[in-house]
């Protein structure tokens, strides 16, 4: 686990100095759980792409006369109270989950990186003060209330949930990036660039941002998980997905069914959600282990 305690034992430098990335890739490839979880995530991604391409999941909205049917060859997970095929809906929801996860993860990571870099680079000066204040403000507003408020302000715009998530999720990334940038600023290569008169923006974009990529990658996976988990709660509260279907909508649909002893909808959506979130969490952990520069093995 903790190789740092053995520094006394193995201080000798490696024969070839590998780059951080090839080392990380090598380490990740050797991580069995990491690889297994990546495989699961890729299977889900495949399902999502298939839905997107119209290969499957096309019947998610088709009504059939059989209501609350048990699992059968025709309806693998049965049907819901409207007679819609639960398996089709769960499959289609995979696409919804990836849409939400990717959009929110990518946008909030970019926003967090930019804000964090500016904040860290101008640490202690007014741009930093403003960003810190904004982070404090956003972190102090209860999340569900904020989403509701954004939904109000955008008057039912279909992506108001996405906007609200991006607007709040970037703060963690920004905090980590800021700390890393402040650390990097003290390094010789940055000071050297300063001494050579390289413009500040160029130093940020060429020397500092690239060195925070490992943080951004890990943060993006964490944000992805947060986004699809939040979607479930928000959809239940009526603040989430507006068009189409999602695991959150399925679960909130199922709250009326479980009281009558019909669990298929609930179990199907829960299982799809749980496996993806679990795999993504493990993937994120493995990624973090592989990219952690402190854990040189």
């Amino acid at each position: 686990m903790n190789a740092t305690t053995t520094t006394e034992a193995a201080p000798a430098p490696r024969k070839q100095s590998e780059s951080l990335w090839s080392k990380a890739v090598g380490k990740f490839l050797r991580d069995r759980w990491g690889m297994a979880s990546l495989l699961v995530v890729l299977v889900y991604l495949g399902i999502a792409l298939g839905v997107w391409a119209g290969l499957w999941g096309t019947d998610w909205n088709t009504l059939t006369p059989t209501i609350n049917a048990e699992a059968s060859a025709e309806h693998w997970f049965g049907t819901n109270r409207n007679g819609q095929d639960i398996f089709e809906r769960a499959i289609f929801s995979t696409k919804t989950a990836f849409e939400i996860g990717l959009v929110v993860a990518i946008l909030s990571t970019i926003l967090g990186a930019v804000m964090g870099a500016i904040s860290g680079f101008f640490a202690g000066r007014w741009p930093d003060e403003i960003i810190l204040w904004l982070k404090g403000v956003l972190d102090s507003i209860p999340f569900y209330l904020f989403v509701a408020a954004v939904a109000f302000a955008l008057q039912g715009y279909a992506f108001s949930m996405h906007v609200a998530m991006v607007a709040t999720f970037w703060t963690t990334t920004a905090r980590l990036v800021r700390a890393e940038v402040i650390r990097l600023k003290g390094f010789e290569f940055v000071e050297a660039a300063h001494a050579l008169g390289v413009p500040e923006l160029r130093i940020i974009s060429r020397h500092i941002i690239p060195n925070t990529t490992h943080i951004l990658l890990v943060q993006a996976t964490i944000t992805f998980v947060s986004a699809i988990k939040s979607e479930v709660i928000l959809s239940f509260l009526g603040l989430g997905v507006k068009n189409g279907v999602s695991w959150g909508l399925m679960i909130s649909e199922s709250t009326n069914e479980v009281t009558t002893g019909f669990f298929n909808n609930f179990l199907a959506a829960s299982a799809f959600l749980f496996v993806l979130v679990m795999a993504f969490n493990m993937f994120s952990d493995a990624l973090q282990d592989a990219l952690d520069p402190k854990k040189t093995g």
Binding site: F236, G248, I251, T255, V258, G261, F266, L273, F274, D285
Partner: peptide
């Protein structure tokens, strides 16, 4: 802990309600 982190709050609530508070 990773398993716990991966289960949605809503699923937990519904699950506990069914297991502890319902005739099922």
């Amino acid at each position: 802990a990773v398993v716990g982190m991966s289960i949605s709050f809503l699923i937990i609530i519904i699950g506990f309600q069914v297991l502890l508070s319902s005739s099922y």
